[in-house]
Design a protein around this nucleic acid. Structure first.
Length: 171
DNA sequence: ACCCCGATCGTA
DNA sequence: ACGATCGGGGTT
């Protein structure tokens, strides 16, 4: 018996960010030899969202968020950890989904909670920034029919934009 | 050149 | 509760 994986196409990421975030729950993140089920995400939406890096406008760092959906946005946080995001919506509208935790199931089994720990374990760094996840077969997200139930909460670790319930976590 | 800040995490 | 550690972005 064979199995095939479908890479999520750009159209998956071009929807509004809250829907993309929820839809990413249960999908399979592949990076190099690592495979994990996405368990927790957060949405960062546009220049009006004070917690979104793009609230500062178009800069060398945020330009990827202003680009096409489906690209990786990886940045260094607190001088020692990296965070992985996937760009959403249309070019010109800066938004992304932060991948906060995954259930790693291959080649090792481990629950990676926290965006910094996730990137450290998978060896995702700024070198993996601005990669087209709809084209790469080494860094992508696979389709899955799983539709996990989830809870919505404020985003973690931010000082502004706490009123928005834009964190989605599989129950 | 200088300063402040931060989508984190491990330790206490 | 707090420090580690450094790049981004604004200011001088």
């Amino acid at each position: 018996m064979t199995s095939s994986y479908t890479i999520l196409p750009r159209s998956f990421y071009e929807l509004n960010t809250l829907d993309v975030a929820k839809n990413l729950l249960g999908k399979i993140l592949k990076f190099s030899e690592h495979y994990g089920i996405i368990h927790e995400v957060e949405a960062y939406i546009g220049q009006e969202d004070p917690a979104c890096h793009a609230a500062k406008g178009f800069t060398k760092r945020t330009k990827v968020m202003f680009g096409d959906a489906g690209f990786s946005y990886v940045y260094l946080i607190y001088g020692m950890y990296h965070c992985l995001n996937i760009v959403t919506e249309t070019a010109g509208f800066p938004a992304a989904v932060l991948i906060r935790s995954i259930n790693l199931y291959s080649p090792t089994v481990m629950y990676l909670n926290g965006p910094g720990k996730l990137c450290k374990k998978l060896h995702i760094t700024r070198k993996n920034n601005q990669i087209d996840l709809t084209k790469s077969h080494d860094f992508c997200v696979y389709y899955s029919t799983v539709k996990p139930k989830y809870i919505s909460t404020p985003r973690i670790g931010i000082k502004v934009g706490k009123d928005k319930l834009w964190r989605f976590k599989t129950i």
